[in-house]
Design a binder for these strands. Structure first.
Lengths: 332, 332
DNA sequence: CTGAAAGCGCTAACAC
DNA sequence: GTGTTAGCGCTTTCAG
């Protein structure tokens, strides 16, 4: 079917295209009878404004670029829901791009984003690549970074304080005199792993102890699980802290295979809660972040930047809450 | 920074904009020296073609609309990865839209898609709403439907045969003389629940038995788990089949709370495998579909339709494979 | 081989 | 109030 344009509507309604344009955009100056006439023509013809042409003429597209780490949809699904809900409310379209772990493709993505003339960009800070942001900044495109604290002109960020979260968990143990607290590296999230380590260091510092319980998973290991099975068959620890649900489960599974009971012989804590933590047995104690809100708040921030609304805080830190379950003991 | 346009490049290179356009589009008629001159100007100015203007002029956007059910990112994450990888290869951009369960918002989404002049649309067939497809068809926009067999002009589909998959599972039991096989409804996927039921009916028909083991979860039940805890405290079954990982886990958890052992007292099978099935204990036996391929194949189909390449099969059925694990017994 | 000019669909001054 | 017209940035005939 041939697309019907504003000209067709104008002709049908016997008015000029300017008038039609006014009607579409809800300009109040149009007289009611004319408005109605145009409205009818639009209905009759099934006219739908061409967003491209509008974008070209207006120099804005009501489109927001969204950059997420590939293979991360489980992890960020809830965040996306928040993001998309808010985007829908404000009638923004989302252009989705993924970055692949290891590849330095953020630059390519930004390039594409630039060409599509998105009004703004929301980036999951997989690996923090500040240089790429600068290109966007150069064009005055607002950015919201999710997952790490970044600020600058037209840059806002929404993040969770992993240092504080890990500090809280590690602190429980440090204060209880339990020193043998291990943090398991998340190879896919080096940034976060570092933050976790920092939190633990801080917690143990407070009780006057040095912390060196961070364990790195050798790069030649196929999976966290296979590594742990070997590792736990030799070493014993009181507590292991993992980043994601699957890693926490891997610890539990490996422990079991090594004849260890959770939580009796080893306690396990997950730093990023998901529904699977409470479906697993034993249920895994975890830090929960308000995932949906992370997305919703990020998008809201973006809309504010786009409408030049005042923003009181451009770096928003979202709280967390620790839920003790069955993988920890003594009320922890 | 002011966006540099084709005019700027033309001026810089002392040629007409037509020539610049030819260079960008790799037209072979441009003489090498001119080409080089233009190329340099492009580099120097950092020119990036405006996709909107190109879209307007060409009447195509190299953008594909993607419609997914909200709250489904865990479920479809892997599919998305396949989709996006292929899209990247063919340089298509993705506009992401979600539909909310219950709401009849596919029409709105299609409306938006139409306005953004996407070249094609890929829809996850959450609830099958054929009427919405027709609107797209009217405009000659190719559609790929994921998850159910649909065909028509410019419509292709990629789906998994849930009937056959469930048939295979149910058949194992029917043939072993185990009649007490329950299929648990997935309230979020009525289509799939029906297909599962159909497969079981077929399997039991073959051994001359009627099948009526489909159980519906009352709409007032908060969660599958709470329902099952109550349900299993009264009723006993040999086998329960669930659609997703979380539902299969809910069965296992509820069974345990009712003093039942998996698989000794009750066997559990999941119809849509995920990594969590093998992380749970007991590991849950499951039917695995090639998720990544579903996405990749769908996108590839779309590119073919867009380039008018010949397509030998517009309804692609993807195979599945059953992996017995610890939640079933006797080699099943 | 290159340039001039029309047109893609729409918006926003500026006239009337 | 409504119409006219000049762009927005690019592609693509059509001339030369």
């Amino acid at each position: 079917m041939k697309r019907v344009t504003i000209y067709d509507v104008a002709k049908e309604a016997n008015v000029s295209l300017a008038t039609v344009s006014r009607v579409i955009n809800g300009s109040s100056v149009v007289k009611e009878p004319t408005r109605k006439k145009v409205q009818q023509a639009i209905e009759k013809l099934g006219y739908k404004p061409n967003a491209l042409a509008q974008g070209l003429a207006l120099q804005k597209t009501t489109t927001i670029g969204l950059v997420v780490p590939e293979a991360g949809f489980n992890y960020i699904g809830q965040i996306l829901n928040g993001l998309l809900d808010v985007a829908k409310i404000y009638h923004y379209s989302i252009i989705l791009h993924t970055t692949t772990a290891g590849l330095n493709d953020l630059n390519d993505v930004v390039e594409t984003l630039l060409k599509s003339h998105v009004d703004g960009v929301i980036i999951f800070n997989d690996k923090s690549e500040l240089e790429s942001y600068q290109l966007l900044q150069k064009y005055g495109i607002p950015i919201v970074v999710i997952g790490s604290k970044v600020s600058g002109d037209k840059i806002a960020s929404v993040y969770m304080d992993m240092v504080a979260a890990t500090y809280q968990v590690a602190s429980m143990y440090a204060k209880a005199g339990i020193k043998d607290v291990i943090i398991l590296e998340d190879r896919r999230n080096p940034q976060i792993s570092l933050a976790m380590k920092e939190g633990a260091v801080k917690a143990f510092e407070e009780v006057g102890k040095a912390y060196n319980g961070f364990i790195r998973i050798p790069s030649n290991c196929r999976s966290t699980f296979t590594f742990l099975k070997e590792y736990l068959s030799a070493k014993r620890h009181s507590v292991m802290i993992a980043h994601r649900d699957s890693q926490a489960m891997a610890i539990c599974n490996a422990a079991r295979e090594c004849g260890l009971k959770v939580p009796e012989d080893i306690e396990v804590v997950c730093m990023y809660d998901s529904k699977y933590n409470s479906m697993y047995r034993p249920q895994i104690s975890a830090i929960a972040f308000p995932s949906y809100d992370i997305g919703a708040v990020s998008m809201r921030l973006m809309t504010k930047m786009l409408k030049d609304e005042p923003i009181d805080n451009k770096t928003i830190e979202l709280g967390f809450i620790y839920t003790p379950r069955q993988s920890t003991k003594n009320g922890r």
